[in-house]
Write a protein that binds this DNA or RNA. Sequence first.
DNA 1: TATTGACTTGGAGTTAACTCCAAGGTGTAT
DNA 2: ATACACCTTGGAGTTAACTCCAAGTCAATA
Lengths: 137, 137
Amino acid sequence: MTIKEVCKRFNVSPDTLRYYERVGVIPEVHRTAGGIRDYSDDDIKWVETATCFRSAGMPIELLIEYVKLFLEGDHTIQARCDLLKEAKERILAERKKFDDALEKMEYKIRVYEKAVETGRLEWDDESSCCCCNKPKE
Amino acid sequence: MTIKEVCKRFNVSPDTLRYYERVGVIPEVHRTAGGIRDYSDDDIKWVETATCFRSAGMPIELLIEYVKLFLEGDHTIQARCDLLKEAKERILAERKKFDDALEKMEYKIRVYEKAVETGRLEWDDESSCCCCNKPKE
DNA sequence: TATTGACTTGGAGTTAACTCCAAGGTGTAT
DNA sequence: ATACACCTTGGAGTTAACTCCAAGTCAATA
């Protein structure tokens, strides 16, 4: 599979894929005799994992570490497992922050929608919502 | 409340708070006669919202736009509501990516844990999991 | 009142993760 | 065989969001 096809499939740029390979986010990709990238099934799976983890905000350094351990062979299985568990905890913590923000947003949206309906903006004083401050004249 | 206290409460640096104010992520903060920042309750609520939305990955530009609309007054209520709804959709989309990554991670963790137990690494061929490629010798 | 430490500003520097570029090689359609 | 589009590399440039710095001001303490 050409770089172009892989890009289309995972919605990333060729520069990004070459960059990932260069810094070790994915292992070296299979080439044609002429030196042109020709992604194997395994290469594609690595791209899939890299783009999936990246779009969940995992730092590139972590992926590089994972690939490095993988290339070292089976004696790094425990280390890889630990790395993934830590990554999972990170993502769970991040997701919690998303949920907090969602809650705050939904509250604000409710208040604004009611204001559009009734013409009066009424913030619950107990809420720790910033929108209750009135613009200073 | 001093800048230091606000920093401690929201776990951000003084530079970050000053930066937020400078670029308009929060409105101008109340000052003492000497010109030193003395955060009011409302100021603090803005900081809370800013840090909450930022840690959910909302870009600063969006927060600046929200504050700008707020300062323009009540005729921007509909616009603010629309902005928040769009922000909410973004966060939902981001959270979906987190869930996808979590699922992939949990699968890999399960396989690695089994490998640690049994001594054999066995990836389900149907899964689109990159870890099934063997290191090239 | 002098020292000390925290605060102020505008502007420059840093970091992660790309993104672009120039100079040249590959491969396929005429 | 000659365009032509697309690929290669190493290295430089960009962007968002801080983060640091220098030079000066403020405020609490000895």
